[in-house]
Each structure stands twice: as C-alpha cells, then as structure tokens.
Design a protein around this nucleic acid. Sequence first.
DNA 1: GGGAGACTACAACAGATGTTGTGGTTGCGC
DNA 2: GCGCAACCACAACATCTGTTGTAGTCTCCC
Lengths: 190, 190
Amino acid sequence: MAKNEARRRALADAGLEVLAREGSRGLTHRAVDEAASVPAGTTSNYFRSREALIAGLVDRIGERLAPSETDLAARAGAEPSPELFADYLRDIVRRLTAEREVTLALFELRLESSRRPELAAVLGAWQRAGFEADVAFNTGAGLPGGAREIALFHYAIDGLLLDRLTNPIDPGTSTDEVVDALVAGLLPRD
Amino acid sequence: MAKNEARRRALADAGLEVLAREGSRGLTHRAVDEAASVPAGTTSNYFRSREALIAGLVDRIGERLAPSETDLAARAGAEPSPELFADYLRDIVRRLTAEREVTLALFELRLESSRRPELAAVLGAWQRAGFEADVAFNTGAGLPGGAREIALFHYAIDGLLLDRLTNPIDPGTSTDEVVDALVAGLLPRD
DNA sequence: GGGAGACTACAACAGATGTTGTGGTTGCGC
DNA sequence: GCGCAACCACAACATCTGTTGTAGTCTCCC
C-alpha cells in the first residue's frame, strides 16, 4: 500500500491531465505514469485498479475546484447586489475556462458517473454540496433568488462552459456578455 | 467494401447504445457487434477504423435528432407567442430526456470533439446549423429574441439535460418547471 | 441456371492494457 | 550499526482491441 500523499496528488493531477487530453479512453495506468514522468507501474501501485484511479481523480478534482480561502473572504466582505453577483459569476466562469483541463475532466467524470453508481454517489454529493453552498451564500448575502434560481444558473453555466470548451455556437459574443445576459434574465428582480 | 445501408444504420444505432452505456472507453468494434447481435467482425467490415466508426455515429446522431417533418409542420402552423415557444422547448427537452441514450452519446461525442479536430469540424457544423435553424425559426415566427438569446437557451438546455441525465442537483423541481422558468427569464419581453 | 459482384463470417496478429507479484532501496527508530 | 517497515521500479501474464486478410455465401441480372 502506497502512502506518499504528495506523489499521490501529483499522479492524480497527471490523471486529470490525461483525462482531459485523451478522454476516458486514454486514461490508463501507463498513460498517467508517462504524464507524471514516473516509472511505469507507479500509478498501478498507488491506484490498484482503474476504478480506484477514477475515484482518486474525483477526490482530487474536489480539491482543485474548491473555492479558495481568499475567494471566500472576498465574498464575505462586499455588500450584496446583482452587480456583485455578476462579478462573482464572471470570475467563476473565467476560472473554469482557464482551468480548461480540470473542467473538461469534470465533464468526463460526470458522464462516467451516469453509469457508475459508486461514482455517482461521490460526485453527486460533492456537486450538491457545492450547489447548496451557493444557495446559502446567496440567501445569506441578501440577494434575491432561492434554490430554484441558483439551479438555473448552474445549468446555464455548465452548458456555457461545455459550449465554450468544445464548439462554440456563437463565438461572436464574449463569455462575459453571456454571463451578464444570464444574470439580467435569471436573477429575480428585487 | 460494405454497402448495406440498413445494416449500417443498425450498427450505428448499436454503437450509440454502447457509447451511452459504456462510454467512450467501451466503444469497440467487438462491443458494437455484440450489441447489434451480429457476428464478430461485422462492425469492422462496415467501419474500417475506430475513427470511421465515430464518424458514422456522428452521422447517425444527426439523423436521429433531426426534427421530424411533423414537428416542423406543427411549428409552421401555429401563431407565435412565448407560450408556444415554451411548448416547443418543453417538447424538445422531453424528447431528449426520453432519448437518453442518444443524448448521452451526443455529450460523449462533444467531449471527444474537443480533442479531434476532424470530429469538431463535422459536429460543430451540425450544431451550428441546428442553432441557426432555431434562430431562423424564432425570428421567422415573429418571436422576440435573436441569436444571442437563442444561444442562451442552448446553453441552459444543454446544462439542464446533462444535470438531469446524470446527478440532478435539484430533483424537487420538475423539468417542465425549469424550462418555464428559463423562458420567463431569458425570452426578451415583447 | 449460371456467373459476376457485393456482402458476410471468421481467423489471425501485433500491440496495448489491467492487474499482480517480486525483489531492491530507502529512511527511521532503537 | 541494525532491523523493520514502507515505498518504489520493474517484470510477467492473461486478456482485450484495432486492423487486415481470406474464403464462403447470397443476389440479381442475363
């Protein structure tokens, strides 16, 4: 049993890279070894089976996409307004677009979870927790909109990201403009 | 060279089934043979390489998800209104949710196209054509909203479908309600 | 009914992949 | 210095996969 956590994280990161670059099909122990520049067999030592490897990637993606302390602090400070909400949203989208690799890997994992119950449990719980945190922040900040409205934003942002990271149907409009239009439409007035 | 079109379609359908059920990783010639209940090697005869197989699936998905004649006729008949627009949208979402298999396969292919330029070209063109048809219908029907607004609907609907087909974050709200909320928010007033 | 051409079943092979085992090395407590 | 346990590199194996080739079968037109 391997326990070196730093190396484990490095391997998981390499795995996410492979997943984004080559897709679920290319995600093999050996490919991760190569991406991480470690001797062949190392990934097999840390993640004994392919299933374990995927589970490791899910854990790691949770770490990578968790809001940082500074983000949370910034959120807590300012006073609520639709403009602020739009600011946050633009930031999130910008970050996820920049972390293209992780975001694409997350889409892969979400699809994978549609056919692996044990993955669905872990990933679903993580997603729902994030969603509920968003709702809590929103209501806590005195912004309009409850769970339903926040869910709408999740749907739209997910679809937007998928579009922008693959084949944009409307490349003429900037991503920020799209986000603003979404906020204008979906955030309840007052 | 094989030319039996009916069998070719049957194989492509089986391929989409495999793609949805097992993911990109499980999509192999032999798996398609099995799903289609044909002797091993048949899929290899029709789709000489894995790439050709994927291209075949894209073609087939275009056929499967094209709006039917009757749909188009129904669209052409009625007089435009936001309610009608919502009706259409609910129908589309219902249909894509029911054809879970094809929709999931399409998501797989979209992700795959993010790393296969030749796939991106075909799939991207198909997507953009569908998008432009939606825009044309919308403006032709005298409904408010141009390309930008229709794009918002595409994003939101895609995200909604992905959510509903994998791990719904807000199972309490019915899909129809979500669509209605989207129309209420995103369709320009008058 | 016979022959040409298309279609199909099946075999074969090289390379990739998941998984397990086996030694060797390293670092740490005593 | 010594032993122990954790960690690591590497080899090996059976299985799966993509791809190609070949021979058999069917169909349809003359």
